[in-house]
């Protein structure tokens, strides 16, 4: 079932320095919604590189284009112009089918809500991308992931029998199970109380530090952003700042000024 994507035909143009390290990057990414006078430039020529094995947060006020950027990076949406690269693959050149396969083989997702298929058990949800690809899960790795997220007792439960925090942990486990190159998290703590949120964020950080995954997280919560190693600030479809080693205070300060921009 699984098809490997022929990356050799998709060559990178320029940015050679970043090429080795970049898990994902964009080149003059533009996304326009609507047409003519009602057109909105959600992404206005964004150039950004997300390094391998790094935890990056994307922040910005509502309508800044942060979710759009993530959707385009994850192949859930396409650009109006410009390029999105995932490793050495340019997403824009992939067919719908190849995109789907790329998502299930190279990407992991944690959404804000409704992360799980209600009719499947926790374990079935975790192995879903592998099952869809007809791949046999690596038992040792799977056990390890389950142990890490701490769901051993609840594997046979269905999502409606799990708390919000447990549901998000299942989602993280799912994102880890297939050992994706990049995990995209869209407001993963948005619906959680503080301590459940902290657990989920710890897990995402663990994925980077222990397992060398790349995590890109969209959030508007400064505390959540402080778990990352780098914060990219967006406003009006443009990158307005790039901060390394964020703390909640620095993020809040910066957000205030972005809000004023």
């Amino acid at each position: 079932m699984s098809t490997s994507i022929d990356v050799s035909t998709v060559t990178s143009e320029g940015h050679d320095g970043a090429r080795q390290l970049a898990a994902a990057r964009t080149h003059r990414a533009v996304k326009v919604y609507g047409s003519a006078e009602t057109a909105v430039r959600a992404l206005d020529g964004i150039d950004v590189v997300f390094d391998r094995a790094m935890f990056t947060a994307i922040m910005g006020p509502s309508g800044s284009g942060k979710s759009t950027l993530m959707h385009c990076l994850a192949g859930l949406d396409d650009l109006t112009s410009g390029e999105v690269w995932l490793g050495e693959t340019q997403l824009g050149r992939l067919s719908e089918k190849q995109l789907t396969r790329t998502r299930r083989e190279k990407l992991g997702f944690v959404f804000q809500a409704f992360n799980l298929v209600p009719s499947l058990t926790a374990l079935e949800n975790i192995t879903l991308p592998l099952d869809l690809a007809s791949r046999r899960p690596d038992k040792t790795w799977l056990d390890h992931v389950i142990e890490t997220v701490g769901l051993g007792q609840r594997l046979a439960h269905r999502p409606c029998e799990l708390s919000g925090g447990q549901q998000q942990r299942v989602a993280v486990a799912r994102a880890l199970a297939s050992r994706p190159e990049v995990i995209f998290a869209d407001e993963p703590t948005g619906n959680l109380d503080t301590s459940s949120g902290a657990e989920v964020l710890d897990l995402l950080r663990l994925a980077v530090r222990e397992y060398g995954r790349t995590v890109v997280m969209v959030t508007h919560d400064p505390v959540a952003a402080s778990y990352s190693e780098r914060v990219v600030f967006l406003a009006d479809g443009k990158i307005v700042d790039d901060m390394a080693g964020p703390t909640p205070e620095r993020v809040i300060d910066r957000m205030k000024s972005v809000g004023e921009v």
């Binding site: 089918k97 789907t100 396969r101 299930r104 409704f114 992360n115 209600p118 991308p129 869809l132």
Partner: peptide
């Protein structure tokens, strides 16, 4: 709708 969108996002092909 929601669930189907999720399935597609995590890698279900149209054919599947």
């Amino acid at each position: 709708t929601h669930e189907l969108g999720l399935l597609r996002a995590v890698g279900m092909t149209r054919q599947q």
